[in-house]
Amino acid sequence: MNKQKFLAGPYLVWAAGFIILPLLMVLYYGLTGDEGQLTLEHLAAIADPIHVKALWESLLIAAGSTAICLVIAYPLAYILSRSHIRQSGAVIMLFILPMWINFLLRILALQMILANTGILNAILRFFGLPRLHLMYSHGAILIGMVYEYLPFMILPIYNILCKIDRDVIDAARDLGADGITVFRRIILPLSLPGVMSGVIMVFIPGISEFVIADILGGSKILLIGNVIEQEFSLANDWGLGSGLSLVLMLFIFVSMPLMNKYDKTGEGQILW
């Protein structure tokens, strides 16, 4: 089957031209100054207090939404993987389906629900409960991110839980393990690769998010994604924007080895 190798040719060219080369462009813009001289000035700009604050808040919100997603998603994936509908593929469809409504519209609809005169507060008022001031806060951004990225946490965990061999669990039970021990010693360790990929799939887009922060956070809260976006769309400082992007790219070097550690077959299939 050795002759088949050439079939990967078109993709190799594509990957070199449109995955590797663009990243080298970011590297080039991020490391050169106005006259094309080598400089670390753009990279060092991350130390600017405004940028440090933005990066820190982004990390906090991304970590928070990842944790909340995990807490919601794990029990859900576990219940679904044990139910009779697990084979139908319908479950996965149900989580992908909302994506057919444009992301911006979903976030705007969420805004209508959370707004001070919105649906949630109308319901609270109906029951005589005090009004919540959720909009334009870190909390609103957090809710938005959890809402947006929850499917990316559920799917990999669900997939890996479905793959666990029932016989292993039965064997553990035969050997006298109770429900908690089975979960702690068998199910949890076997599902860790799915958890890992879920965490990466939520955390990575979470750090760089700027649209959700824009709509639900008002323009009061500046995340690192907003800073980078503004360098390109408003300030036209591509060098600075690229330099800050390089800082975000560092997270790849953290997540790539993590992925490879858990993805022993090298198939990359644990992402989805």
Binding site: V26, I200, M201
Partner: peptide
């Protein structure tokens, strides 16, 4: 196995990279 591993890692880049970085990178090109 080795070249396969390298290619899979490259394939993973657009998924592991933040969308904003992918977008900016392609735009710069």
């Amino acid at each position: 196995k080795q070249s396969q591993g390298v290619l899979i890692s490259i394939t993973n880049i657009p998924m592991l990279n933040a969308d904003i970085v992918t977008g900016i990178a392609v735009m710069l090109l």
